[in-house]
């Protein structure tokens, strides 16, 4: 049994070492991240650890399950869509070998961009910087006045998107603690199996003894 334990120990050590070297353990599952920016929905499809999924099929659905748009990811595993409708955009990424991931871009995130496209009024839930920066330059037309804050807004949304991408990465990343935990469960199951096999063996022996004495 020493040998198996030793092999397992090496496997664990390899896992630990790779985790400590910054190349943390990750499964080959597919993940997606998407955000609205500059009137488009941009997104990326990647395996844990950041390997891009090339040519994954992206389908966008509205909350009623109607297909809104379709596209595929490029060589960097990225895609972009033009949101034509203001609603929650549920994006589903699929590959032919059975990987699947989902991500929803909420309508609140879209509204500013889509409102620009369709000329709808800007929602009251707009971030503060807009209203704070709007008053200073009121020269001639409305469109000129709103131009600089929109630029600032785009900058901000890019930064927020980068932050959220990082958060999402953190969420899907598998930590080596999880892997050790899984091994612990298996050892626990082994103990449980031993217990029940032991109980059965004892019962059988007890039964045998009773029969022999009677």
């Amino acid at each position: 049994m020493h040998l198996r334990t030793r092999i397992l120990r090496w496997a664990l050590l390899a896992g630990l070492a790779s985790a400590l070297l910054g190349e943390s353990a990750h499964a080959h599952s597919m993940n997606m991240f998407a955000y609205a920016e500059g009137g488009r929905i941009r997104g990326e499809v990647f395996a844990r650890g950041g390997t891009p999924f090339i040519g994954a099929k992206i389908t966008a659905y509205d909350p009623q399950g109607e297909t809104l748009a379709e596209t595929t990811t490029d060589d960097a595993g990225e895609f972009s869509l033009v949101p034509a409708k203001r609603c929650d955009w549920r994006l589903v990424a699929e590959t032919d070998d059975g990987h699947r991931a989902e991500y929803t871009v909420p309508s609140t995130e879209l509204s500013a961009d889509v409102a620009e496209n369709e000329g709808k009024p800007i929602e009251p839930s707009q971030p503060a910087p807009e209203s704070g920066a709007a008053p200073p330059p009121p020269p001639t037309s409305e469109s000129v006045a709103s131009a600089p804050p929109a630029d600032e807004n785009a900058d901000l949304s890019r930064q927020v998107a980068a932050l959220r991408r990082e958060l999402n990465q953190l969420r899907v990343e598998l930590r080596w603690q999880d892997v050790i935990g899984g091994v612990g469960y298996i050892l626990g199951l082994m103990g449980l199996t031993f217990y029940f096999l032991g109980v059965r063996k004892r019962d059988r022996e007890a039964g045998g003894r009773k029969k022999s004495t009677s």
């Binding site: 397992l8 496997a11 896992g15 790779s18 080959h28 892997v179 899984g182 091994v183 298996i186 050892l187």
Partner: peptide
């Protein structure tokens, strides 16, 4: 356990 671990290490 070995199967669990190795298939998680890319």
């Amino acid at each position: 356990a070995a199967f669990f671990v190795v298939s998680l290490i890319q």
